[in-house]
Amino acid sequence: MIISSEPLIASRGGGETCDHVFRGSGNESIDVIQGSEFDVMQTFDEARDNHDKYAVCHFKINPKRNITHEQMLQSVSMLAVEFGFEPDTCTIVRHRKVKAGEPDADEHYHLYASWRNSNGKCLDSSYMRVRQEKISRTSEFLFGHDIVKGRHQVAVIRQLRDEGKADIADHIEAHTPDLYEPVQSAFTAIQHQSALRQGVNLGKLRRSIRDLRITSESFSKMVEGLSSLGVSIQKGEKANTYIIVNNKNNKFLGSANRLFEMKKGEFANQYEALQQGKDTSFALSEDERPVKASEMSGDEDFSPVTPAIRLRQCRLWLIRAFHPEVELLTSGPIILR
């Protein structure tokens, strides 16, 4: 799961963000789970009237596998507890967008949380990226999903241990290969835009290449399969570096090892061995085995209970589980001892 956020400036208004979230093209469907576009626009109006810099915080929740309605509410509740906003009043929108080769990951969520709550207190925005990753990794642990390696994985593990959640921290550490190696993106934003001008979507190409790696029985079969994608491998300018180029114009698209999600040295060794007539068979790990729909954690559960009540129930459960030092009053505020 990847969670990102952006504070939206009140003076700029909510028209642009609402156009994307409530009417964005390219989505199979757009479902408003809680709140409305009117609520978001009203929050912007109130923030401007109060001369606040920010109106809302726009969170995007992007699971690597589709999650149930209940699991989504748990993630929202954890975000609310972590950053101090009111989950009952936020707006939640689900987008469904088909991803090539990922039929079980075609949903993501947009969440608008008011920057200032009803008590006049602003959302706690310090170290947001690290704390968002903590919620992402915790969600993966709770939902039984594969652990995604984030840029702040070591800091997340340390923070979870400081909070007394050693079981979650131990699980994340055990399921994060190359924990202390920095995370590198498969391609940069500049490379993505350059590829688009060539008629190539690097996101789709990366998924296709990953599928090719997973389904190929050997390294040579993987390399041969690139021709069907309209790309090929060439040696880069630097030592032990190989790149993917567009067969139509021979232009650079991205680093070969990053698009194949392999270590630079490992890819170079295998490719150079292949040039010498040696081949390598692939043995997929359990984590790389394709996930079947039947192995998902369950179907969505839409009960007649209102979303606001369900959010509060999830929030209370999470606070009891992860913050035992907090005393809960079911009909009143949260009181710290």
Rank of each mutant, 00 (worst) to 15 (best):
Phe59Trp: 09
Pro290Leu: 10
Glu107Ser: 14
Arg213Gly: 02
Val32Thr: 03
Val98Ile: 12
Ser11Gln: 15
Met128Ile: 08
Leu253Val: 07
Asp162Trp: 14
Pro177His: 00
Tyr109Lys: 00
Tyr54Met: 13
Ser118Glu: 14
Glu295Cys: 11
Val32Ser: 01
Pro63Asn: 07
Ser255Phe: 13
Val40Ala: 04
Lys60Pro: 03
Ile233Thr: 00
Arg137Gly: 02
Ser220Leu: 08
Ser216Thr: 03
Ser77Ile: 04
Asp19Ala: 13
Gly277Leu: 08
Ala268Val: 02
Phe141Ile: 04
His110Leu: 13
His58Tyr: 14
Asp301Leu: 11
Gln193His: 07
Val291Glu: 08
Asp301Ile: 11
Gln42Glu: 11
Ala166Asn: 12
Asn201Phe: 06
Ala239His: 14
Glu237Asn: 12
Ser11His: 14
Asp124Lys: 15
Glu261Lys: 14
Ala283Asn: 15
Lys235Ala: 10
Arg131Ala: 01
Asn257Pro: 04
Ile61Val: 02
Ala105Phe: 04
Glu325Tyr: 13
Phe38Gly: 01
Lys97Gly: 04
Arg197Thr: 11
Asn119Asp: 13
Gly35Leu: 06
Glu82Gly: 01
Val56Ala: 04
Ile33Ser: 03
Asn250Gln: 13
Phe22Ser: 09
Ala80Val: 07
Gln198Pro: 00
Cys314His: 14
Asn117Val: 12
Trp115Thr: 11
Val183Phe: 01
Ala239Ser: 11
Pro333Asn: 11
Leu202Lys: 00
Ser185Met: 13
Tyr180Lys: 02
Ser281Leu: 14
Arg12Ala: 15
Val291Lys: 12
Phe85Trp: 11
Val183Pro: 06
Ser25Glu: 15
Tyr54Asn: 04
Gly120Pro: 00
Val200Ile: 15
Ile334Arg: 07
Asp167Tyr: 07
Thr68Lys: 02
Phe282Gln: 03
Gln74Lys: 10
Phe83His: 06
Glu140Gln: 06
Ser185Asp: 10
Gly332His: 15
Arg12Tyr: 15
Thr306Phe: 10
Ser139Gly: 02
Val130Ala: 10
Ser126Lys: 10
Lys204Asp: 14
Ile2Val: 13
